[in-house]
Design a protein around this nucleic acid. Sequence first.
RNA 1: GGCUCCGUAGCUCAAUUGGAUAGAGCAUCCGCCUUCUAAGCGGACGGUUACAGGUUCGAUUCCUGUCGGAGUCGCCA
Length: 615
Amino acid sequence: MRTLLGFTSVLNCIYGHAMTTFSETFANTADFKTVLTDKTGEAFVREGFDATWGKVNVSDRPDLADFQCNGALAVAKQAKANPREVATKITAHLTGDTAIKSLEIAGPGFLNFVLSDSALSDRANALSADERLGAPVVETKRKVIIDYGGPNVAKPMHVGHLRTAVIGESLKRIMRFMGDEVIGDAHFGDWGYQMGLLITAVSDEQPDLPYFDETFDGEYPVHSPVLLSDLERLYPFASNKGKENAEYRDRARKATRELQDGRKGYRALWQHFVDVSKTSLKEDYRILGVEFDLWNGESDADPFVAPMIEELKAKGLLETDQGAEIIRVAREDDKAEIPPLLVVSSEGSAMYGTTDLATIKQRREEECPDLILYAVDQRQSNHFTQVFRAAYLAGYASEGQLEHIANGTVNGTDGKPFKTREGGVLKLGDLLAQANSAASVRLHEAGLGKGLSDEDFNKTTWQIAVSAIKFAELSNHRLTNYVFDLDRFMVFEGKTGPYLMYQAVRMKSILRKAVEQGVSAGEIIVTEAAERELVLLLDGFEAALKETYLKRAPNILADHVYRLAQTFSKFYAACPVLIADTDAQKSSRLALVKLTLAQLEKGLDLMGLTAPEVM
RNA sequence: GGCUCCGUAGCUCAAUUGGAUAGAGCAUCCGCCUUCUAAGCGGACGGUUACAGGUUCGAUUCCUGUCGGAGUCGCCA
């Protein structure tokens, strides 16, 4: 379910900046990787090679170096030269830099950079002073709509809905933080045949309601005649009956049509369905920390369908085929056969793709986005190919402005699509409650949270529970068909959300104690190995965010955040802060803790998580 | 059958334009709480990256094929 809309064209959008596609580049780049890349690139240029060969990466041999450049190998291959000789010439241009403690040629021609402690100290202090904690900003701000969620009326959310909600929310936060203007749209599934099914089911169960009396001209009741539980019960019932019983199906279709044609009682009843469902959905999303800017539904797109069809006709894009109106979207070089987009079915109704296409038109006219991302299951990839091509043909967007951010499926521990042990669907709300209960038990077992009020204790367990679920989700690449194993997520040991929470809590604890003891943060002076490692990690925030942004892959951010927490934990064990030998060391390490906490909390926030004060 | 995605340690997952010794967590084993929270830290064990070829100085990564899994292929969404 995706939405639609569209009235008349808004000229300044159609002919304005939205037709421009931006290259995705970033502004402030002060991390070691970039600085070293610039320097090394310059060295390559001075040897007559392209600067791009100077790309420096974090070393994958931390025992040998902090950073490395593989460019000499590649350029030598192209120039048919000896890689070690090339590397020698490059290093000659890089001597005399005090930031570089050592630069060595290793193996077949790798350049190994080791940075000086003072360079690390300087960088750490700069990060401390940077309110963005080293995060990059996009060079050109764009307006982005992210379409994620896709919840439906009468269908409770389940684990499958977690994927798009959690990934979409994270991408929204990341892009927004990096400077884009981002609108999150829930794209509520509130229209179509399923609504007709519900109306039919309610009319059979409660035929005396005024909604079904066409002669009724009074005020319809304010309160809904159905509860959420009724909808959840009626929908599967009606859906099955519609499949088995042709007469029932026809009644539901008729109801659908009448609803869409504006039959008053049906509209009023439908509004109750929408309100009841939305209230429940919003509660689930609230717990998950997912916030939409728009709750546009498919119904909001409905008024735009008819004008759009006229427009498509006028443009000569529509073709009648087997009684339906279609747009052909196949291309010469297609490997797979891409079927045409069905705009009007042979029964005269709007289809899934119709709604989506109209939604693109609506968004263009109402929001004029530079980019629309669809965080939707990969199984709909054909659908989006069709819709996107149709949109390009219709001029509702230009090539590259529409992207399907596909995700894999969520499986159970048996490798099949997730089901409860009883074989049923586990409702998201129940799942969250289970996780919360597990967190509560764990906290009690550990004898923690005793000093907390009931309210704070409850808040803490939810933060831990949600972190377990969301981090498990986000640490997988979005295309992975991952196994959802709540028991494993709830163990709270190792690479889990609660681990991240725990490290944040330890940092906060140190900060509180520092205040008590009158220790204040000062200049960071890096000396210990654990400090070096931590600063290098902090420096990597920028690169991790860039990568996450370009690939629309929050697992890269999740990995950075985890490694940051892990590296801090190592530092925590190796480098006492408040009981360090000297005051300067205390101040330095305290500043490092503050910086680490700030970046960790920012990273958590970008994943839609918040750490408690105590756990 | 066509097309898409996937196949990495016993399990769940990573791997930055093709780079050095393929990394984490869990599980198993060994250490570490009279210093800031042990939901922690250190270490060990664990791999023919499904298989067979090809390109390359170098392949988990690119190409071809085989096997295995998932998905999808116009009037559902």
